[in-house]
Simulated assay, not measured.
Amino acid sequence: MHTEPQTARHPINRWQHPHRFSAINHTGERNTKLVLILTLVTMVAEITTGSLYGSMALLADGWHMGTHAAAFLLTLFTYYYARKHADNPAFAFGTGKVSVLGGYTSAILLGLVALFMLGESAIRLLSPAQIHYDQSILVAIIGLSINLLSAWLLKDHHHEHSHHHTHQHIPKQTDTPKNHHAHEHQHHQPQHHHDHNLTAAYMHVLADALTSVLAIAALLLAKYAGLNWLDPLMGIVGAIIIGRWAWGLIRQTSPVLLDADPDLAKQQLIRQRLAPLADHGIADLHLWRLNADQYALMLSLVSHQPKSSDAYRQLLTDLPWLAHITIETHTCEPAHCPGGTF
Rank of each mutant, 00 (worst) to 15 (best):
N31W: 00
H161Q: 07
I270T: 07
G54F: 07
V41N: 00
A323V: 08
Y202P: 01
T174Q: 15
L40I: 11
L154G: 06
R20S: 03
H194W: 15
T7P: 02
T49W: 01
W321R: 04
L227P: 10
P171C: 00
L126T: 09
A107T: 08
G94F: 04
L227V: 12
P334V: 08
R30S: 10
L101R: 05
P306H: 05
W229D: 06
C337A: 15
T253R: 09
L290G: 04
A323W: 01
M43N: 06
D195Y: 07
H193D: 04
Q191R: 14
I242H: 08
F21Q: 04
G28I: 03
H26F: 09
Y79G: 00
I241Q: 10
L58F: 02
L115C: 09
L274S: 05
Q191G: 12
Y53S: 11
L36E: 08
T166W: 06
L115G: 03
I141Q: 03
C332P: 11
G66C: 02
L220G: 07
I242K: 03
N179E: 15
S300C: 10
H183K: 14
W321V: 04
A260L: 10
A107N: 04
I270F: 01
V98D: 03
H204N: 05
T67D: 09
L322P: 09
H159W: 04
F21Y: 09
Y312R: 05
L285W: 09
L34T: 00
Q267P: 05
A129L: 12
D279E: 01
L126M: 11
I12C: 15
M56I: 12
G281N: 00
N13D: 14
T75L: 04
S127W: 13
H163G: 09
H2K: 14
L264Q: 15
N31I: 05
H2M: 13
N197G: 06
W152H: 14
D259Q: 06
M65P: 00
G243E: 11
R313T: 15
S212F: 08
F93A: 08
Q189G: 12
V100E: 05
Q189W: 14
S136F: 04
G50K: 06
A323Y: 05
A140C: 06
L287Q: 04
L115S: 05
L40P: 03
V302E: 12
H183C: 13
G94A: 00
L285C: 10
Q16V: 13
L299G: 03
G340C: 07
Y202A: 03
L101F: 13
Q16D: 11
V44I: 11
A45H: 00
M234W: 00
S303A: 12
P338H: 02
P255M: 08
A71E: 02
H286E: 12
G339M: 08
T49C: 12
S127F: 15
S254M: 06
L36Q: 01
V113D: 01
Q173W: 14
G281L: 09
C332V: 13
H280Y: 13
Q252M: 08
L214F: 13
E4S: 12
I270Y: 05
D261Q: 09
